[in-house]
Design a protein around this nucleic acid. Structure first.
Length: 480
RNA sequence: GCCGAGGUGGCAGAAUGGUUAAUGCGACGGACUGCAGAUCCGUUUCCUGGGGGUUCGAUUCCCUCCCUCGGCUCCA
C-alpha cells in the first residue's frame, strides 16, 4: 500500500492516511437528492471522489465506496407535486439518469448506492436509541435531535450554536425545543410516502439516513467521509452528533474530505439562481474527457469558476493537445492485430516513461494534486510530439511503454477514455477508401471534389489532416 | 454578525522560506499547406489583494485590514 496524505477537514491539516483495518477502506460520500437533473457542479464533486477511489485501489487499498441516494425529502415531494409525479418515482427517474450520466463520465468506482428509504428500519432503531439515551425527543408526531445535549457539536465546522442565526435561510420549526435542533423523523401529511413508527406515520429526516447506512455497512467508525464543502454544516456536523450519540464511540470518521464548489460567474451554481448547466447537456457537447480535464485541472479544494461558453471550450482545446500522442498511439495499437515488430525504445526514453509514472503517483499521493499530475502529463505530451512522425515505426512494446503515463491517467484520472465506435472495424476499412479517393482528386487538381470528400467526412465525425507523410484521419468531437 | 474556503499573468489555474513563479488557453510572428486544420519554432505575461511583522531572504510563516465565494439547520 502506498503511503499518501490528505487534507482532513476535521483537524484542518494534511495528514498521512492510515486505515482502521488495512488494506480495507470504508469510504462514504454524500450523494445526490435526485429531485431534478444533476448539473455540472454536482459532477465536479463526484469526479473528484472517483479519482480518490481509483487512486486508492491502484495503491493497494481495498475500497468499499458507498454513495447514498436521498430519494425522499421535501424537495422531492415538492417537485413531484409540481409535476404530478409520484415522489419516489421522480427520484428513481432522476437517479437513473444520474447513473447513466456518471457512467458516461467514467464514474465506476462506487460499489453501492443505497437508497434512504431502504434503511427505514435502521433509522427507526437509531432514533429509538437516541431517545432512550436522552439525545432526541418526540414532538407533534416528529422526532428532533437535541443539539444542546451533544457536547462537541460544531467541532467540524467551527460553528458555535450560540453564534448561529436561527432562521437565516430556513424557517424555524415551532415544534422544536431549541432552534438549533433538527428533525430526524418527520411527521407526514396525508398523501406523502410514509412509514409507521412509534411516533406516528412519518418519513426519515435528511441527516439520519447517512448514519443509519454507515452504521449498518461500516459499523460505528470508518475511514473516509467525503462530500461537497457546502455540506459541512449542518449536515456532516449532524451526522457526527447522531452517530456518536447513538453508539457512544468516537470519532465516527477518521478523515473528512470536502471538495470545493463549482461557481458560475462567481456564484454558486444552483437551481434557485437559475444558472445551471445540466450534466447531460455538457456530456453531449464535450464528452467525458473534456469535463474530467476541466474539473481535475484545479485543486479539489479550490473554488472553480465555470464560465458558460468558455470553460469547457478551453478545456476541449487543452484536451486535444494533451491527447494527441495518446490518441495516435492508441490508434496505431488498435489497428494492428497481435504484436508488431518495429523500432524498440531507447533506454533513456523507456526509463523516462517509467519514472514519470512514479512521479505521477507521488504527486497524487500528496493530497490528490490532480493539477500537478496533469501538468506532468502535458510535459510528456510535449516530449512525444517529437516522436509523432515516427510513431508508426515503433514496436508494440515500445508503444506500450510510451503509452505508460497515459495509461496511468486512464486508470487513475479517467482520462483518454475512448468510445466504442473508435474501435469499430467498419470505419477502419471505409475511411481509407475515401481518403485515397480524395488523394487522387487532389493529385489531378480537383480541389472541389477533394474538399467535398473532406466535408462529408467531417460531417460524419471524421477529421482529416494533411501533413508531409500523407493524410491522417481520426474521430473528431467528444468521446462518448 | 459568526464559522469556513479563497484572492497569483489577457483568461483558467499550480507551486515554493532563496537561481528565469509550473501547466494550459488566448494573442502575435514565422515554417508547413492548393486551402483549411493539426503540428513545429519563436514572441507575448504575473515581483503573487493592501499594510505591518519575523527572517540574511517571503509570494510562502505571523498579525491586521479589504474583497470574493460557501455555510448559518433538509445544497455536491
Amino acid at each position: 500500500m502506498r503511503r499518501f496524505t490528505l487534507y482532513d477537514s476535521m483537524t484542518r491539516e494534511v495528514r498521512v492516511f492510515a486505515p482502521i483495518a488495512p488494506p480495507r477502506v470504508g469510504m462514504f460520500v454524500c450523494g445526490l437528492t435526485p429531485y431534478d437533473e444533476a448539473h455540472v457542479g454536482h459532477a465536479r464533486t463526484f469526479v473528484f471522489f472517483d479519482v480518490v477511489a481509483r487512486a486508492l485501489r491502484r495503491w493497494g487499498y481495498r475500497v468499499f465506496y458507498v454513495q447514498n441516494v436521498t430519494n425522499l425529502d421535501d424537495k422531492v415531494i415538492a417537485r413531484g407535486a409540481e409535476l404530478g409525479e409520484e415522489p419516489l418515482a421522480l427520484a428513481e427517474r432522476n437517479f437513473l439518469q444520474w447513473r447513466a450520466d456518471s457512467e458516461r463520465l467514467g464514474i465506476r468506482s462506487v460499489g453501492y448506492y443505497p437508497y434512504a428509504t431502504d434503511y427505514v428500519p435502521e433509522i427507526l432503531s437509531q432514533i429509538q436509541t437516541l431517545i432512550d439515551r436522552g439525545y432526541a425527543y418526540p414532538a407533534d408526531g416528529s422526532v428532533y435531535y437535541s443539539v444542546g445535549k451533544f457536547g462537541s457539536y460544531g467541532r467540524l465546522s467551527g460553528q458555535r450554536t450560540e453564534s448561529l442565526r436561527p432562521g437565516a435561510r430556513v424557517e424555524v420549526d415551532r415544534s422544536k425545543r431549541s432552534p438549533e435542533d433538527f428533525v430526524i423523523w418527520k411527521a407526514t401529511t396525508p398523501g406523502e410516502p410514509s412509514w409507521e413508527s412509534p411516533w406516528g406515520p412519518g418519513r426519515p429526516g435528511w441527516h439520519i439516513e447517512d448514519t443509519a447506512i454507515t452504521l449498518r455497512l461500516f459499523g460505528p467508525r470508518y475511514d473516509l467521509h467525503g462530500g461537497g464543502i457546502d455540506l459541512i454544516f449542518p449536515h456532516h456536523e449532524a451526522e457526527i452528533a447522531l452517530a456518536e450519540a447513538a453508539t457512544g464511540e468516537s470519532p465516527l470518521v477518521n478523515y473528512w474530505m470536502h471538495s470545493g464548489m463549482l461557481n458560475l460567474g462567481g456564484e454558486k451554481m444552483s437551481k434557485s439562481l437559475g444558472n445551471v448547466v445540466s450534466l447531460s447537456e455538457a456530456l453531449d457537447e464535450f464528452g467525458p474527457n473534456v469535463l474530467r480535464l476541466f474539473y481535475l485541472n484545479a485543486h479539489y479544494r479550490s473554488p472553480l469558476d465555470f464560465v458558460k461558453g468558455k470553460s469547457l471550450e478551453e478545456a476541449r482545446e487543452a484536451y486535444a493537445r494533451l491527447a494527441l500522442p495518446a490518441d495516435r498511439m492508441a490508434g496505431v495499437l488498435s489497428r494492428g492485430s497481435g504484436d508488431r515488430s518495429g523500432t524498440e525504445l531507447s533506454e533513456a526514453l523507456a526509463k523516462e516513461a517509467e519514472s514519470l509514472v512514479d512521479r505521477l503517483d507521488a504527486t497524487l499521493a500528496e493530497d490528490f494534486n490532480t493539477r500537478e499530475a496533469i501538468a506532468l502529463l502535458f510535459g510528456w505530451t510535449r516530449r512525444l510530439v517529437a516522436e509523432l512522425p515516427r510513431l508508426d515505426s515503433y514496436s508494440t512494446d515500445a508503444l506500450s511503454d510510451l503509452y505508460g503515463p497515459y495509461a496511468w491517467a486512464e486508470e487513475v484520472l479517467g482520462l483518454f477514455v475512448r468510445g466504442p465506435e473508435e474501435r469499430a472495424g467498419a470505419w477502419e476499412k471505409l475511411v481509407p477508401i475515401l481518403v485515397s479517393a480524395r488523394a487522387r482528386a487532389r493529385a489531378r487538381g480537383d480541389f472541389v471534389e477533394a474538399d467535398r470528400i473532406r466535408g462529408e467526412l467531417a460531417a460524419a465525425g471524421i477529421r482529416l489532416e494533411d501533413d508531409a507523410s500523407g493524410t491522417r484521419w481520426e474521430f473528431a468531437g467528444p468521446n462518448p
